[in-house]
């Protein structure tokens, strides 16, 4: 009878619970992007030079990776949002929630694989040299 830690276990939910968690996480992430985006765009009213300076600071490989993450988050949030709408409004929605989860995952991957390639192409070429 060993006495162990006092915390309870994490609830082991299915696809429904984890898609909901991811929906919240991507929602908050997109919100913070929008916050920064509104602030940097508003800089144009301060001075065009300040705006150019801030935008130029984004031209780094890390920001490029963040952009890929942003596209992934927006796409997931949009597709899962449609899934949730269908669950609530379409009479057969709740019965097909699992299939719809796999459908949005497939569409997301289908768009993200070429999307990531083209978004990172310039960064990779600039960092490791272009073949053309």
């Amino acid at each position: 009878m060993a006495t162990l830690t006092s915390v309870g276990t994490l609830y082991r939910g299915g696809e429904g619970m984890w898609t909901w968690v991811l929906h919240r996480v991507t929602g908050v992430a997109v919100f913070f992007f929008l916050l920064v985006h509104v602030l940097d765009t508003a800089l144009v009213r301060v001075s065009p030079e300040a705006y150019d300076l801030v935008i130029a600071s984004y031209k780094t490989p890390i920001v490029n990776l963040l952009e890929v993450g942003l596209v992934g988050a927006v796409l997931y949030h949009a597709f899962n949002g449609l899934r949730v709408v269908l669950i609530d409004f379409w009479s057969k929605g709740p019965r097909y929630q699992r299939q719809m989860t796999w459908a949005i995952a497939a569409v997301w991957l289908l768009l993200m694989v070429p999307g990531t390639f083209f978004m990172l192409k310039h960064t990779v070429e600039a960092m490791f040299g272009s073949t053309s």
């Binding site: 939910g13 299915g14 909901w20 669950i87 609530d88 709740p94 929630q97």
Partner: peptide, 22 residues
């Protein structure tokens, strides 16, 4: 309701709980 379907999975009577809420 945020349609996590935890309720439908948990029901020992096999009730489609999320569907009932919908």
């Amino acid at each position: 309701c945020r349609t996590t379907f935890n309720c439908t999975d948990a029901c020992p009577r096999g009730i489609e709980v999320t569907k009932a809420i919908q």
